[in-house]
Amino acid sequence: MIAIENLHKSYGKLQVLRNVSVEFSPGKVVSIIGPNGAGKTTLSKCILGMVLPDSGEIKIDGQSVLGKHAYRSQIGYMPQIGRYPENMKIRQVIEMIRDIRKDAKEVDEELIGLYSLKEIDEKRMGALSGGTKQKVSAALAFMFNPRILILDEPTAGLDPIAAEILKSKILKEKKRGKLILITSHIMSEIEEVADEVLCLVDGSIKFYETIPDLKAHTQEERLSRAVAKIMNEGYHP
């Protein structure tokens, strides 16, 4: 579904992505992990077209997406920290995005309902807590029933109940055949929702495997241990 070929990106002298090539297929939850500064967010932003790669290619369904924008109607994105125009109300933000994506056939308001955003929709964005803003971001990401979801640290800042709601939503969407990319640091969470793990270190892919394969290779029961082992021992699959 998404094919990334020989992707390079540097910010000045700092090489953030080095020759990254990977393919993601639908109906999967892929977790992108790696130490801070490994290029996780950069990779997802490249897919979104927010960061422009120095070289390489990104294709969705075989079509290059670099320099284009229409393809983003197929992507739902939840940023790490969602900041919105402070003076707009929740209702207005949701209306605005709907207004912009008028051509979306199906509107999924499940998260709006589950997070009870309707009840507080007259609140100004500036007055919302970080967690509530994340709820809005999540609701917006899923709203247009996109084929691809990119979630950047989705549960950070959410209360446990809200995080559970989000996780079950992720699994539900996966079953509907969507591709979901999640960057996260929380291994237990990844273990719960993800099928595959893509690990980036210093801008290169360290490994990209399914969770069961990973556990088998390392002979560890828990994902966090398995990952730690690979990191420490220098594992090459």
């Binding site: 979104l48 077209g49 927010m50 924008h69 229409a70 393809y71 983003r72 109607s73 992507i75 994105y77 940023p79 920290i81 969602g82 900041r83 919105y84 125009p85 402070e86 995005i97 912009i100 994506r101 917006l140």
Partner: peptide, 17 residues
């Protein structure tokens, strides 16, 4: 600068930069 995240939000939508 204050609209930075807002522009990010829009950039992730299918709109021309």
């Amino acid at each position: 600068y204050n609209s930075y995240e807002f522009m990010e939000l829009l950039v992730s939508q299918p709109i021309n930069r």
